[in-house]
Computed example of a mutant assay.
Amino acid sequence: MPAKIVMIGGGSGLPVIIKPLVKADVDLTAIVTVADDGGSSGLLRDYVNIIPPGDIRNILVAMSTADQKLLDLFQYRFQTQDDFLAKHAVGNLLIAALTEMTGDVSEAITELAHYLKIKGQVYPVAKQPLVLKAKTTEGHLLSGEAAITAAHQALDTVWVAPTTPEKTIQANPEAIDAILSADMIVYGPGSLFTSILPNVVVPGIKEALQVTPAKQVYIANIMTQKGETDAYTDAEHLAVLNRHLGKNMIDAVLTNSTIVPEDFVDYQRWGEISTQVKQDPDAISKKDAEVVSRDFLLLRDAGAFHDGDKVANVLLSLLEK
C-alpha cells in the first residue's frame, strides 16, 4: 500500500512540493485553509457564501494529470478591465457554481477532481469560511487574513472564528480522518501565520495532529515575511508552530543551506522587504526535531523559492526511515 502523506498549508508554496510528489508512489492529501478573504477568493466567499476557492483551485491543478489546455483555462484570470469578472479565475467560479449546484463543497471538489484527473485528495480544513484573528507582539488585535497581511506587524498568536457569532466551527471530518491515518504530515512551505497556522488552530484539527502516529515534518521558509516574521530563524518558525500545536510535535525540519545572492531578489516586484531565514540547528535539536539541512534553493523570476523536486526527494527518503 502506498504511504499516506498529508500536506497542510495554503498559498503558492504547497503546489510546488505537490507537483513532484504526484509522480511518486504515494497516497497524497492536501488540507487547505478557508480563511483567505482577499482577491477573487474573498469576493466569492462574501457574495456567494462559500469557502474561499483559490487555494483549492491551485492544489487541484498541481495534482492534475489532465491536458494542459484545460488547466490553462481553469487557471485563467479575467483582466482588470472586465468589470465584475475582473481578477476572477475561471476555476474559482467553477468551484463556486458546483458548490451551489451540489449544496456541498466536498461534492463540488470531488466532481472537479474527476474532470481534472487528479492524483490525490483535496480537503478544505472546514466546510465553512472562517475569519482569521491575530494578536500582535504589542497586544493589538487584527481581524481578517488580508488585513493581517497588509498590517505588516509582528505577530504573536493567531486563531480562527466563525463569520457570525451564532455559528460554531466544525472541522472537516475528511481532513481529521486523513490526519489520523497518515504516515507523514508535512507543513508548508508557506506563510507561517496566514497559510499554515490557520489550519492548525481549527478545533478538531489541532487535537488530531496531537494524537496522530504520523511523522510530522516542517518545511522552513527560505525568506522571512515582511512584518510577520522579520529576522526569524528556522528554529523560531518551528517554535511558533509547536506553540500553536500545543506541544512539540514536529519530528523533522527541512531547512535550506544555500545562500540567496543579495542582488538577485527583486523585493519591489514581490512586494516585500525580507531577508534570508537564518539556520539555528542547535535550537531545532532542543525541540526534539531532526535537522535536515540541504540545498533546497531555486532561483527564478527574481525570487527565492523551494526546489520542489529536491524537497520531494528528501520527504520520500524520510518516509523510508
Score class of each variant (00 low, 15 high):
Thr258Asn: 11
Val260Gly: 00
Gly303Val: 06
Val277Met: 03
Ser257Tyr: 05
Trp270Gln: 11
Asp295Ser: 07
Gln268Trp: 00
Leu297Ile: 08
Phe264Asp: 02
Ile250Met: 14
Phe296Ile: 14
Met249Pro: 00
His306Cys: 14
Ala252Arg: 06
Asp263Lys: 02
Met249Val: 06
Ile273Cys: 05
Met249Trp: 04
Pro261Asn: 04
Ile259Gly: 06
Val277Thr: 02
Ile284Gly: 09
Thr258Arg: 14
Thr255Gln: 08
Ser293Pro: 09
Ile259Met: 11
His306Glu: 13
Ser285Tyr: 11
Asp295Leu: 06
Asp263Leu: 00
Ala304Arg: 09
Trp270Gly: 12
Gln276Cys: 03
Asn256Glu: 04
Glu262Phe: 03
Asp263Asn: 07
Val253Cys: 07
Trp270Ala: 10
Arg300Cys: 05
Thr258Tyr: 05
Ser293Asp: 07
Lys286Ala: 12
Ala283Lys: 07
Val292Lys: 08
Val292Met: 11
Thr258Ser: 14
Asp307Trp: 08
Thr255Phe: 01
Gln276Asn: 01
Ile259Phe: 07
Val265Asp: 05
Phe264Val: 03
Ser285Ala: 14
Leu297Glu: 12
Ala252Met: 11
Gln276Gly: 00
Ile259Glu: 15
Lys286Gly: 00
Ser257Cys: 06
Lys286Asn: 08
Ser293Asn: 09
Gln268Ala: 13
Ala252Ser: 14
Thr258Glu: 14
Lys286Met: 09
Leu298Tyr: 04
Ser257Asn: 10
Asn256Met: 05
Gln276Ser: 02
Arg269Ala: 13
Asp288Cys: 13
Thr275Gln: 07
Gln276Tyr: 01
Ala302Arg: 15
Glu290Thr: 15
Arg269Tyr: 05
Thr275Phe: 02
Val291Tyr: 01
Arg269Trp: 04
Asp307Val: 05
Arg300Ala: 12
Val292Glu: 05
Lys287Val: 00
His306Tyr: 06
Pro281Tyr: 00
Ser257Glu: 12
Asp280Thr: 04
Thr255Asn: 07
Ser274Ala: 12
Gly308Glu: 15
Thr258Ala: 15
Leu254Trp: 01
Phe305Ala: 15
Phe305Gly: 15
Ala283Glu: 10
Ala289Lys: 13
Gly308Val: 13
Pro261Trp: 00
Gln268Pro: 11
Asp288Ser: 14
Phe296Pro: 12
Val277Gln: 03
Arg269Cys: 10
Ile250Leu: 13
Thr275Gly: 02
Leu297Lys: 10
Ser274Met: 08
Ala283Ser: 09
Asp282Trp: 01
Leu298Trp: 03
Pro261Glu: 04
Leu254Asn: 05
Lys287Leu: 12
Gly271Tyr: 06
Asp295His: 05
Leu298Arg: 08
Val291Gln: 01
Asp295Thr: 02
Asp263Trp: 00
Met249Gly: 07
Pro281Arg: 01
Gly303Cys: 13
Ser285Val: 08
Gln268Phe: 00
Tyr267Ile: 11
Met249Arg: 09
Ile259Asn: 12
Val253Met: 03
Gln268Lys: 08
Ile259Asp: 13
Val265Asn: 06
Phe305Cys: 15
Ala304Asp: 10
Thr258Gln: 14
Thr258Leu: 07
Asp301Phe: 01
Ile273Tyr: 08
Leu254Thr: 05
Leu254Val: 06
Arg294Pro: 09
